[in-house]
Simulated scan of single mutants.
Amino acid sequence: MSLKKHKKEILLIVIILTAAGALLLVNQVLFAKPAEKAEISVDGNVIDTLDLSKDTEITVNGYNGGTNRIVIKNGKVHVSEATCPDKICVHQGWVEHTGENIVCLPNHLIVRVTGE
């Protein structure tokens, strides 16, 4: 391998790492607001907005009779139970940062963490 080609590869790696670092920094700045609320929507319609500072448990009726149990505890939110077949929303675990989402496609549910 020629030295010239080797230098080009190193330069490409440096450019990629610099771009990745810049994108990470931009992401941190954009989502730096502290999470305050969990916005719950079904079929694209916001049905409730919950305060993350108050421990809460609610059951949300989703699409076609499906349900999701949403738990807020210690400023975090998760779906503890769901009637959907795959339970991806349940396995997603706790979310707490602005911009994070929990999605249950079969029940058409989205829980979005916001900073407002």
Rank of each mutant, 00 (worst) to 15 (best):
90 V>A: 05
41 S>V: 01
68 N>A: 01
36 E>R: 15
28 Q>G: 07
45 N>G: 02
56 T>S: 13
46 V>K: 13
64 N>A: 15
28 Q>P: 03
74 N>I: 02
91 H>V: 02
6 H>I: 09
111 V>L: 09
103 V>R: 03
103 V>W: 01
94 W>N: 04
52 L>T: 07
110 I>F: 04
68 N>G: 01
77 V>F: 06
71 V>Q: 15
114 T>F: 03
63 Y>M: 02
31 F>L: 15
51 D>T: 09
81 E>D: 13
82 A>R: 07
2 S>M: 05
108 H>P: 01
39 E>Y: 03
79 V>D: 08
91 H>Q: 11
83 T>F: 02
95 V>F: 06
57 E>G: 04
91 H>P: 04
23 L>K: 02
38 A>I: 02
30 L>H: 03
98 T>W: 01
62 G>C: 07
37 K>D: 09
23 L>P: 00
70 I>Q: 03
40 I>D: 08
68 N>L: 00
52 L>D: 08
4 K>F: 00
23 L>T: 03
83 T>H: 05
1 M>K: 09
90 V>N: 06
46 V>R: 09
50 L>A: 10
74 N>A: 13
101 N>K: 15
49 T>S: 13
1 M>Q: 11
38 A>M: 07
47 I>L: 01
113 V>C: 03
4 K>I: 03
81 E>F: 06
46 V>P: 05
87 K>R: 15
97 H>A: 14
63 Y>T: 03
25 L>H: 06
62 G>D: 10
17 L>V: 12
112 R>S: 12
35 A>I: 00
49 T>M: 02
108 H>G: 00
103 V>P: 00
92 Q>L: 13
